[in-house]
Design a protein around this nucleic acid. Structure first.
Length: 419
DNA sequence: CACCGTCAAGTCGCA
DNA sequence: TGCGACTTGACGGTG
């Protein structure tokens, strides 16, 4: 079983993705962006390998305007070697990657022009995966599309247009239930007709369930039958509702109790779970640690090194609690650990706690900081006390010093992640 | 340098 | 008939 995350990382240096506006998309600009993005992708893959993350969705924006006429670059040739290196890392580590065109790629539109663009977009996604040289178990996840007043006809169009796709595209496509038009029962019917795998998305299913009410495990069982050997192991999407936002909005983090409850209900654990969540890799590591049988306290110590200043800032009492929890080196109190972390993250930091933590971090630099850096830092602290500046300013100056003096311990800290 | 409007895509609901 | 919401992070222009 693998657990992974989608498209981008949180709090990992050098993994950002860049784009530009259509009007600025010159060949030179695009070349720059693609090169930059492929470097970031390689860094993400490296990070995944280091952190035992074996499931990842590559962002559709990796090649800006890839399926637009504005981009005439043969990027798969220009960057052939880079793709091979990244693909080699993916394959060697046993990682499984995927891609997921957005809501604007609509294969069943009645408009010829829209379908044409969708086909081009699917070709693009296939080209990326083919360039990486990864097998056909590395999938492209697609929604069915719109209804246009006649669902049966719309489904028929999807089927016909799918059949016209290139074979190398077809063998990568898997289809997923969405939150308003095509529920899991609809998608399973289409999957059966076309003989293609179906991805079950739990949150979409909660919002847009079929009339025939079965629990989610029944639907997961139904979907499993659509995954053939050559497709790789069954994959599902898992997310939780953000309680403060509208239905369908993904939560900030994966609540570990709720996740474990879901996970324990799965009768077959040979399944890949793609998390859709705001804090991305952070939740992925959490869920991996909580479901691994071969992890030890070491894994939690690594996690603690990333969380500790965030926790010191938001909940100093939990900071003490967690340190106690990690004292016993023979135990692996993983759920209690993340319970305390989640509890801390919900708390609002006080002015005093924020300053205390900032001063803690200052300790890393006090020996080598220049007078200018020192003055700026302590002036910021004074201003912050008087409400004349934000903690973000202070964190920004600490971050700059962390980069300058290459404090890797701090560069990996969740302390710098906003909100 | 912080802030915030704009972008890019297709569908659908609502004036 | 046409416009805004939906979605998302980041671009890019403004103050």
């Amino acid at each position: 079983m693998n657990i992974g995350y989608a498209c981008l990382t949180v709090g990992v240096p050098n993994t950002k993705e860049k784009s530009c506006m259509l009007k600025n998309a010159s060949p030179e600009k695009l070349l720059d962006l693609i090169s930059y993005n492929l470097n970031s992708l390689e860094n993400i893959i490296d990070y995944n390998i280091e952190n035992d993350i074996k499931l990842f969705r590559i962002s559709s924006d990796i090649i800006p305007f890839a399926s637009s006429p504005i981009n005439k670059l043969k990027w798969w040739e220009i960057f052939e070697e880079k793709f091979q290196i990244i693909g080699w890392k993916i394959k060697k580590s046993g990682m499984r990657v995927s891609m997921h065109p957005g809501q604007y790629t609509v294969l069943n539109s009645p408009k010829e022009e829209v379908v044409k663009k969708a086909v081009e977009d699917l070709n693009y996604h296939t080209q990326v995966l083919d360039s990486l040289g990864v097998g056909e178990d590395h999938k492209i996840v697609l929604h069915i599309g719109g209804i246009y007043g006649d669902k049966n006809q719309a489904i028929e169009r999807f089927i016909e247009n799918y059949k016209k796709l290139d074979d190398k595209v077809k063998k990568r496509i898997v289809i997923e239930n969405d939150d308003k038009s095509y529920n899991i029962n609809d998608v399973l019917e289409i999957g059966h007709i076309l003989n293609i795998p179906v991805i079950f998305d739990n949150l979409h299913n909660e919002i847009n369930p079929p009339d025939e009410e079965k629990d989610e495990y029944c639907w997961i069982d139904e979907c499993r039958k659509t995954w053939r050997k050559k497709d790789g192991c069954q994959k599902i999407h898992y997310s939780q509702q953000d309680p403060l936002k509208k239905p369908g909005s993904h939560s900030k983090t994966i609540g570990i109790r709720q996740f474990m409850n879901f996970y324990e209900g799965l009768d077959i654990k040979d399944i890949d779970i793609m998390l859709e969540v705001k804090d991305k890799n952070i939740s992925a590591i959490k869920c991996i640690n909580c479901t691994s049988h071969d992890k030890s306290i070491k894994a939690l110590e690594i996690e603690w090194s990333r969380y500790k200043y965030k926790i010191l800032e938001s909940a100093p009492s939990n900071y003490v609690e967690i340190r106690k929890l990690l004292k016993d080196k023979d135990n692996y109190p993983v759920i209690d650990f993340y319970d305390l972390i989640e509890d801390s993250m919900e708390k609002k930091s006080t002015l005093g706690n924020s300053i205390n933590t900032a001063l803690h971090l200052w300790g890393y630099f006090k020996e080598m900081a220049t007078d200018r850096e020192k003055n700026y830092f302590f002036n910021s602290i004074e201003k912050y006390k008087k409400g004349q500046t934000s903690i973000a300013t202070i964190k920004n100056s600490l971050w700059k010093m962390a980069v300058k003096y290459n404090e890797s311990y701090l560069l990996n800290s969740y302390y710098f992640i906003e909100e």
